[in-house]
Design a protein around this nucleic acid. Structure first.
Lengths: 327, 327
DNA sequence: TTGTATGCGTTATCAA
DNA sequence: TTGATAACGCATACAA
């Protein structure tokens, strides 16, 4: 483990000159610079990250807070995390991961945020969760001058990366209409507005009446909703999520309804499971890696004290339709 | 951000005494100890991890190397990582995550392992991948005195946590037989011995002839294998993985074969998708969080220079059957 | 153009 | 039982 001091000795200069030569800043005589760089290379020098961070007062590590929501670990999350990590590493930074720390802290009566801030991370990426008050959290992090970014918050006053859910659904419904489907229904909870709004807007543009089966919240209730759906005599259905879409598929199977012959089904999320169902599910894909990369880019910029772009830091990413056999 | 120095000033003692009092080591007068602890609490002291690591020469961070295998991120991986992180955090350590660094380094002609070792991690957890030579890697890490553990290596001479795949399949086949199934088949690649061996052993114990449909490697080929399977007239089938089992379900649907009425289907892995299929899939569950916790425990012990238990560090975890509607 | 010296917050050595 | 003080490796203010 070579140190600057070792390079200095080999190159016959002071440690300060080594620093300058390696950073390429200030005045260093060409010959000296060559000698230093050569010594560094032959000694296989790598800066000691901890020492650097201690000195500069800034860790190079971004912390990711992943809520272990009911112990269900999400392949959508890991793709985002991977996207972040790649981007951070390219910028010389690294990624630390924490799970379900909020709920644990609440049980223990401690305050998570203080602990996280105390670790002086280069940035904080937070997965929105019902147990984490986004706005209040964002304000405290701003105050502590810790760069942060949320994934998929609904709150509009925090910096976040999200997908254009409305736009995705709108495109999907238009695409179904373009393929000749006349009665396009929607199955899913109606308290999440963005997806439902996309559906309503698209139908309005098309001049059609909405056909909505509200209330489904999981695989089982979606399965049970199949008869209610078919009572509307639809020839296509946009579902709130892949999980619900797969539940609906099960219900349709049981009723003897053939997919896509009798009805086309479109999901939302592009989970791994969507490619494994019978039939494989056409669905709206989140570009999770891109989302992670975007989040990382925001944190990198913030940590370099760059000024926010005119529209603010938040980014909205487009979704795309993955066409499989259910349509 | 209070430092030891701040506590020392408030408590009116030297910084050294503060250190002793907080660690509870050496001789500190009871009254002084109380004063120091009180000051630490009221100042909300938290040790500076970086400074500590710099001084002790050991980082408290375990690095996890997750191969981004073809860009497919795995919910099985993230559960393991979550299990690790929880255990590490309880031991005062943390977790850093790196993706697909091997393939990137190979492209760039650099050596990953040296870079990782240069970061002086408290430990290294590696997901086995075809591109990472486990034995050679383990030897180099041993030499560099970096604690390591693999997930699911086939190599027997490296420290690893794995699941008892043979045992899991054996139990599953016995369970099927116990439920009255007479002709229990196996679908999957035959070059992975552990699962196939479990099947063969169980059938041998039962005194029955094996019914094997070899060769399937993905959803599509498993789907195509349905007719070949049914030609064997089985009344139950153990499949190599959930992915293949779901492909097989699709093929059986297309043939009009009813599951579980005509044939019972058992998968392997307990992916999220297994709970979302029609019918939901009975499958062998890996205890991924437990696996992560076991890996973390090994790294913690190694990093404390504990001596390996008689059988070595490696651990084999049992699998369990999750019974759903496909049986 | 180059070098000396200091400090980041901890731990640890040695002396008092 | 306690306290000065050095050192970990790096970055940098200040001198030369």
């Amino acid at each position: 483990m070579t140190r600057l001091k070792d390079i200095a000795e080999v190159a016959g200069v002071s440690i300060r000159t080594v620093g300058r030569a390696l950073k390429g800043e200030g005045y260093v005589e060409a010959g000296v610079r060559e000698r230093v760089l050569g010594a560094a290379r032959s000694l296989d020098y790598r800066p000691h990250r901890l020492a650097r961070s201690l000195r500069t007062g800034r860790s190079q590590e971004v912390l990711v807070l992943a809520g272990g929501i009911g112990g269900q670990y999400d392949e959508l999350h890991i793709a985002k995390i991977a996207g972040m990590e790649r981007t951070l590493r390219a910028a010389g930074m690294s990624l630390g991961l924490l799970f379900g720390i909020e709920s644990e802290a609440r049980r223990a009566g401690r305050d998570v945020l203080d602990e996280l801030i105390a670790r002086r991370p280069a940035g904080l990426a937070l997965f929105a969760s019902p147990t984490l008050p986004a706005t209040a959290t964002a304000r405290r992090l701003d105050q502590a001058r810790v760069p942060y970014v949320f994934f998929d918050t609904r709150e509009s006053d925090v910096d976040t990366v999200r997908h254009d859910r409305s736009g995705g659904i709108r495109e999907s419904v238009r695409w179904l209409a373009g393929r000749g489907h006349q009665r396009i229904a929607y199955v899913g909870p109606t308290d999440e507005r963005s997806r439902l709004d996309g559906y309503l807007e698209a139908l309005k543009t098309l001049g059609r009446e909405p056909l909505i089966v509200p209330g489904s919240a999981d695989w089982e209730t979606a399965r049970a909703a199949a008869p209610a759906l078919m009572a509307l005599k639809p020839d296509a259905v946009q579902v709130y999520s892949d999980i619900l879409a797969l539940g609906l598929l099960a219900g349709l199977h049981e009723m003897g309804v053939r997919v896509p012959k009798d009805i086309a089904v479109v999901g939302f999320d592009d989970r791994f499971a969507a490619s494994l169902s019978y039939p494989p599910l056409t669905t709206l894909q989140q570009s999770n890696e891109a989302m992670g990369a975007a989040a990382a880019a925001i944190l990198i910029a913030k940590s370099r004290d760059e000024v926010a772009p005119p529209g603010g830091w938040s980014r909205t990413l487009p979704m795309s339709l993955v066409i499989r056999a259910s349509t």
